[in-house]
Design a protein around this nucleic acid. Structure first.
Length: 587
RNA sequence: GCGUGUGUAGCUCAGUUGGAUAGAGCGUUUGGCUACGAACCAAAAGGUCGGGGGUUCGAAUCCCUCCACGCGUACCA
């Protein structure tokens, strides 16, 4: 990377200057403490290092330090200048040409770092209850999670994406009982969900179970094969254990299928769906409880078993087995995380909604109590999503104004939904403005970026296509032949770019920046940086396009600019791929 | 109360680990198409970085304190 090249030169020169005694006594100097930044004023250069931090140790004024360092730099290909305590750097032709050459050479792999500490990562996200359709909040985790998976894979890690199905516990009973009411309605009974608010909480009154009930009734013969039951056996106010189990299983299955279909449509591809129920059945949960007991971190109070999580930094101890003998949600979650570790992952990354933040300390505590390294668990807490409709915020969470993710995607499309869900830092609540996301105008960053890609494709098409003059009716030959174009793509030499380099400095630097971006985004786990980058790159390209005509009679200049367009197209593709947003050839 | 996140231009947000004159997009104003896609570009106006203290040569960034808003604070999942 150009900025690393620069930093490296500065660091080496600094060492030499110290050895020569030109920087006074640098006893307390910590090596590699300098940071490369971008100059506020682009006239100063492409990159800069501020050496003021060395002034205190060296007891020399910052400009003198900067000059002493620059004096030790032996690099005639690039420009170094000192202003105040800053060493400014302007990349010479060689570095810029090499950047584009690298794009042609690596193509879809451009941006991947060379040497990284590869980790085997399990990334868990969405992990919803199979009790209903996704709401828009799930959409944020789905979009961000899959983009993060793409990014970490691209970076070089091994990434396993997992969805934890919360299919155990009382909410499934609620689901089964709710389906029973819908079935009875379908069968013509005059029943409805309780109107009493407290009682209503034991049901899912949303419309989405109506088609499930229809399906159940229509296919009842098949569903109930092997039992002595009929549909009318389900039309009772209180379900038997047998009928309830059937209802629960059926409804749960339907909901899971609904969710899986949506995820696929949303370009979210999990490697595994891990059922909480199978975790219980496997005995792993009990095993975990026993291990915790053996470690002496469990005590009994008020008839329940408590885990001493406060010994590991949690605010208070947590119940792990209720007085009625049932495990809590936490108990299963502990077993689940231990299971992940036992499956051999180096790192577990979870994306959780901010409403779960209280769980971080207790899960980490359990991992530590069981003798594992809690630092292997990295929890990314995401702030929630607000929907903005006609300029008004609509709070999510209340079932009443629930907008499902299906509806949202249908309304604004997969590309725009994914981009909008990813475009803000995970620490910020996200305002999702439906109207804005829908518009195909400059108010919408997705289209701005996609337009840049389509425009690049259009130019490349024009390069090899003949045209007909609308006035004279004569055919205008193609600016270059297809074989010439292929030659440019496949046998790119860096000299080709030279004629346009001066007018495209900023664009080339932005393209090269993709490498730094990947490193930054992957290491900080923040995908919104990709959204920003892609907008900046598109802006540089549009600007270049308006200032320079690509297709022209000057063949060398045309090839040169075409090479740049090809590079832009490639890098936009690479970046949009990570986001799971399409890069259209035409719009 | 405690925990946690946020507060930067009219709006939505960046700000790379303390540095140069605080930056983008939208909106507003002005200019640019008989030329490769104007879904674009160029330019201007717009700021007490929530308030107040402190550390430092230097603070949007670190510390303290106060204010406002979101989320959490279950033997629910």
């Amino acid at each position: 990377m150009i900025k690393d090249y620069f930093l490296n030169n500065v660091e080496n020169a600094l060492k030499n200057a110290i050895l020569k005694g030109n920087l006074g006594q640098m006893n307390d100097y910590t090596p590699n403490s300098l940071v490369v930044e971008k100059p506020k004023n682009p006239d100063f250069g492409d990159f800069a290092v501020n050496v003021s931090s060395l002034a205190r140790v060296a007891r020399i004024a910052p400009p003198a330090i900067a000059n002493a360092i620059v004096a030790e730099i032996d690099d005639k290909d690039n420009e170094y200048s000192v202003i105040g305590g800053f060493i400014n750097f302007k990349a010479g032709q060689k570095l810029l040409l090499a950047a584009i050459e690298e794009i042609f050479k690596k193509k879809e792999a451009f941006g991947r770092p060379e040497n990284i500490d590869k980790e085997k990562i399990i990334l868990e996200y969405v992990s919803a209850n199979p009790t209903g359709p996704f709401h828009i909040g799930h959409g944020r985790w789905a979009a961000m999670g899959s983009a993060l998976a793409n990014l970490l894979k691209f970076y070089g890690h091994e990434v396993y994406q997992e969805f934890y199905i919360n299919d155990a516990g009382s909410q499934i009973q609620k689901l089964g009982n709710s389906l029973a009411i819908r079935i009875r309605q379908k069968m013509g009974e005059d029943v409805d969900f309780p109107t009493d608010e407290l009682e209503r909480k034991n049901y899912y009154p949303g419309d989405y179970l109506i088609p499930v009930a229809e399906k159940f009734v229509e296919n009842s013969a098949e569903i109930l094969k092997g039992t002595s039951l009929e549909v009318k056996d389900f039309c009772k106010p209180v379900q038997s254990e047998e009928t309830l189990n059937i209802l629960c299983d059926f409804a749960k299955n339907e909901m899971e299928n609904l969710q899986k279909a949506l995820l696929e449509n949303f370009r979210v591809n999990f490697d595994n769906f891990y059922s909480e129920l199978t975790l219980h059945k496997s005995g792993k949960v009990d095993e975990c409880v026993n291990k915790l007991k053996a470690s002496g971190k469990i005590y009994t109070k008020d008839g329940a078993d408590w885990f001493r999580s406060s010994d590991f930094g949690d605010d208070q101890d947590r119940v792990i087995k209720k007085a009625d003998g049932a495990n809590t949600y936490l108990t299963a979650d502990i077993a689940y995380h231990i299971d992940k570790l036992e499956r051999g992952f180096d790192r577990m990354i979870n994306i959780w909604g901010a409403d779960h933040h209280g769980y971080v300390a207790r899960v980490k505590a359990s991992i530590e109590a069981l003798g594992y390294d809690p630092n292997k668990l990295e929890i990314l807490l995401g702030q929630l999503v607000n929907l903005v409709i006609n300029g008004n915020e609509v709070r999510m969470g209340k079932r009443k104004n629930m907008v499902t993710l299906d509806d949202l995607i249908e309304e604004v499309g997969v590309d725009a939904t994914r981009f909008w869900m990813c475009m803000r830092s995970i620490d910020n609540t996200l305002d999702f403005d439906i109207e804005l996301a829908k518009t195909n105008s400059d108010e919408n960053p997705v289209f701005y970026v996609q337009y840049a890609h389509a425009r690049a494709c259009s130019i490349l098409r024009n390069a090899t296509e003949s045209k007909i003059d609308t006035e004279t009716g004569k055919s205008i030959p193609a600016p270059m032949s297809v074989s010439e174009f292929d030659e440019l793509v496949n046998n790119y030499k860096s000299e080709i770019l030279a004629p346009t380099l001066d007018s495209a400095r900023k664009l080339v630097l932005k393209l090269e920046e993709f490498k730094s971006l990947i490193k930054l985004s992957a290491e900080t786990r923040q995908v919104y940086t990709i959204c920003r980058y892609v907008q900046e790159l598109a802006a540089e390209f549009h600007s270049f396009y308006n200032a320079n005509r690509v297709i022209s009679d000057d063949k060398e200049l045309m090839k040169s600019r075409l090479a740049l367009v090809i590079s832009v197209k490639q890098v936009l593709n690479n970046a949009l791929n990570l986001l799971g947003v399409s890069a259209p050839e035409r719009m």
